[in-house]
Simulated scan of single mutants.
Amino acid sequence: MSQAAATALDTDTPDVLCVRDVPFAALESLLARHGLLLHRVRDGEAIPGSFWGEPEAGVIAHNVYVRGDTPVHSMLHEACHLIVLPPERRAQVHTDATDSDIEEDATCCLQIILADDLPGVGRARLMADMDAWGYSFRLGSTRAWFEQDAEDARAFLRQQGLPHV
């Protein structure tokens, strides 16, 4: 997440889809297909493993933590950080999962792809939410990056044996 996104957390929150807007069972099922457990934290409580702080999702090993006000793009982003990691590295993750630029790019690419598996989300809405939240790509928008500049991220995902790329 960019500094702009972190700043957005301290001021006006953009209108983005949140966990409460998507059937929780669909979120759980998507993560379970990748060996992850989704945990709902009560509203107002701290989110374990949240790098950016509430309402951003948190990660600890194979666990993803969210509240109702956690943006769906945040849940997917943090989950995808875990998905792109080999199991031995995933087990060591607590709060900060990124180890390299290519892992970060692969995470962004995969979260867009997996958004199509969530009812009422889809990649177009997720990319719009990422832009609204402040993700920053050199081509100016998430869509431009995904469509024109993410081949290295797709190649990394294929090397990891991940589907849909």
Results as ranks from 00 to 15, higher is better:
72 V>S: 13
68 G>E: 09
46 A>Y: 02
115 A>K: 02
75 M>Y: 08
12 D>S: 14
145 W>D: 11
96 D>C: 12
160 Q>R: 15
73 H>R: 14
86 P>H: 02
153 A>R: 09
99 D>C: 09
4 A>E: 13
73 H>Q: 14
55 P>G: 05
146 F>V: 01
83 I>D: 07
137 F>A: 06
23 P>A: 06
161 G>C: 01
14 P>M: 13
79 A>Y: 08
162 L>I: 08
145 W>S: 07
92 Q>M: 04
120 G>L: 00
53 G>Q: 13
25 A>P: 06
163 P>A: 06
38 L>D: 07
105 D>K: 15
56 E>M: 15
164 H>R: 08
133 W>C: 03
98 T>M: 12
62 H>Y: 09
12 D>A: 15
12 D>P: 00
78 E>Y: 13
147 E>G: 08
6 A>L: 01
164 H>G: 12
150 A>R: 08
51 F>H: 01
76 L>S: 04
36 L>D: 09
145 W>R: 02
131 D>A: 00
48 P>G: 07
63 N>W: 01
32 A>N: 04
10 D>A: 13
87 P>Q: 04
94 H>D: 14
52 W>E: 02
97 A>W: 09
160 Q>N: 10
26 A>F: 12
67 R>F: 12
165 V>N: 06
70 T>A: 01
111 Q>E: 15
107 T>K: 11
70 T>P: 08
129 D>F: 02
93 V>E: 10
121 V>F: 04
28 E>S: 04
158 R>G: 10
112 I>N: 00
14 P>E: 04
38 L>F: 08
154 R>F: 05
